[in-house]
Amino acid sequence: MAPVSSQICPSPLFASSVIQMAHGSGGRLMHELLARLLPLLPGTVHQNVRHDGAIIPVGPWENLAFTTDSYVVRPLFFPGGDIGKIAVNGTVNDLAMCGAQAKALSCSLIIEEGFSVATLERVMASMAEAARVAGVDIVTGDTKVIDGGSGGNLFINTAGIGAVNPGITITPSRIVSGDAIIISGDIGRHAVAVMSARSDLTFNPPIESDSMPLTALVQALIQAGIPIHCLRDATRGGLASTLVELAESSGCGMAVVEKEIPVSTQVRGVCEILGLDPVYLANEGCLVAIVAADFAESALKVMRTVAAGERAQLIGRVTSQHPGVLMMAGPYGTKRTVPMLSGDQLPRIC
C-alpha cells in the first residue's frame, strides 16, 4: 500500500464558550451544561436528584409537585399537535412523572414583534383544548413582546403544580436490580411528525405526534397499588437517553431487548430511509415505568386498560451488572451498548 502520508487530525478547539444547539437536545452536552450550572445555584434542593419536577412538602397529607418547561418547537404546527398542545401536555406529564395530578398551570408567552394574532389565537385554542383533556386549569400567565428578526417566533413557558400523596416516592434512587422496565407505547412518532413538518417530508398517511397527557396512566398504576420505583417520560433524547439517565442516576444497569421495543411500521420505515435510530427519537406521550420485579405483568395489565398505555410493553430489566450503562440485546444473540446521544441525531448521507 502507498504510505499513509500522516495519520493525524487536529483536535477541535471548541471548548464551548458559547451555547450550541446540541446543548438543548437532551443528550450528553446538556447534562454537562447542567452539571456546570447547578452548583451555581446553592439553594437548589436535591441537586443530585435529576427529576422532571420537584416535590415540596406542604403538610402531613399532601406534597406539592412543581415543575416548569419552555416550548420552542419549530414549526409551531405539525401533524398531531402544535406548540400549545405540547406546552400543556409536557408540563402535565412532568408532574405525572412525580406521581402527581396536575392542578394548575401558568402560561407565559414570549412573542416576537410581527407575529400573527390569528395564529396566536389558534395556539391558545389548542392550549385550552389540551388543558380540558388533561383536566387542568390554566390559572395565571404573562405576555412579553420582543424585537424580532423574522417576526415569526413564539415561545411558551408553562409551570405547573400538582398534588402528590406523601406515601408515594417515585425517584431514580428507588430503582433496584431486577426491576421491570416498561414502555407505555410505541416510540418515535413525535420526532418524526416534527421532522416531517420541518423538512417538507410528507408521509401517507401522515405520522402524527403522540402528544397526550399521561396522568390517567400513572394514576391507574398508583390506584392499582403497583410499586412504581421510577417514572420518566421519554421526551428529548428519546427512550435511550431516558434509560441511560436512569442508569446513571440509579447506579444500576439497564438491560433491554431490542425487539420488545414497540415501534410502528411507519416510524420504522422512516428510520430505515433516513438512517435514524428510533430509540433516540423524542416522544411527547410515552413514559418509561420502572416497577418492582414481580409486578411487571400486573403493571402491564393495568396500563393496557388506559388509552395512553394500550401498547405498553415489557422491554427489559434493571440489573446489577454494567452499572450506569444501558445494554441492548439484538436479534442475533449479540449485545451492544446504547449511550446517551452526544448531539442531535442526523440522517445519514449515503
Binding site: A255, H322, A329, R336, T337
Partner: peptide
Amino acid sequence: HYRGGQVDGASQFSDL
C-alpha cells in the same frame, strides 16, 4: 456507540 469502547463487544451482560 455500540461497544462502549470495547474491542470485542461488551462481555458482561445479565440475562434479560
